[in-house]
Design a binder for these strands. Structure first.
Lengths: 141, 141
DNA sequence: TTACTTAGTTAGTCAAACTAATTTTTTGGT
DNA sequence: ACCAAAAAATTAGTTTGACTAACTAAGTAA
């Protein structure tokens, strides 16, 4: 069943990851906010308020790209920008109540969708997936 | 270590998959061909010559989008378009020798990059990842 | 044959990525 | 204390890949 060849393992994970992301994306589309914006919002939600630079780094995009994404999110009332008190060049970007509500909704939607899939699995299989995720996180940077 | 809560498992896999894809993308960028084009080329390489419609369906984009991607690939000499003999509305798109060479190069590059990561793992951990990939494929779609 | 369906193309729009140039502020060296 | 260099954001402009809508050409069926 299990291939030991690294390339086979990598390819299998690659394909599986793409499929998984496709499934999740459906739920995300329903929020009316694009994937890059949702992702940035997620970093802010779970990582706490932070500068544009650190957000850009977390999302692996340029500062310019993130500047636009955050401006859009601000225009939609999902985040708020404030000048950093200690460094007036810098921003402190934080999630608004509305932004938090949207994330929570999204979380529920995603859960509903994934529950249908994951519910098919046994306790052991779920544990296997959790372990695999942990391994992947450890090796991927 | 292993969380049993479906949402936790799903989120962990989601994040892990994103990271994995990011890593692979770096290798793909070196080919000088964009990810969507590489992906279409991959479908043609492994799935054999096929129509624009079936390619579009495989890649989950519209016909119009795929039409442009394939035209670009053709301009770069990576695929060839021929009118279907049996249905002159249809195309038969196939990978050229140049296209196949590029895929092979890409495969090597990706292998080199992923080997570094996967080599850190034990035999058992690799098997775990392979099993997880199999489970993911089974439940996603 | 006339009407419908299917395959693909083209035009036009939009979002998100990039680079380059600019402003504002902070920091370091002399 | 000053001035140069670095850092944080923004803005302008480009490219790519996605979409829809409108089209042509070819096959199918009433």
């Amino acid at each position: 069943m299990a291939r030991r060849d690294p390339l086979e393992v990598a390819n299998a994970l690659h394909r599986a990851a793409i499929r998984l992301l496709r499934t999740v994306r459906v739920a995300d589309n329903e929020t009316g906010v694009s994937a890059p914006k949702l992702s940035a919002l997620s970093v802010l939600t779970f990582g706490g308020p932070q500068s544009l630079t650190s957000l850009a780094r977390a999302e692996q995009v340029t500062l310019a790209t993130m500047s636009k994404l955050v401006s859009d999110l601000e225009a939609e009332g999902l985040v708020a920008k404030r000048v950093d008190r200690e460094d007036k060049r810098g921003l402190r970007i934080e999630v608004t109540a509305k932004g938090r509500a949207l994330m929570e909704e999204g979380r529920k939607r995603r859960l509903a969708r994934l529950n249908k899939l994951i519910a098919k699995l046994s306790r052991e299989e779920r544990a296997q997936l959790a372990d695999a995720a942990e391994i992947m996180m450890r090796i991927a940077e």
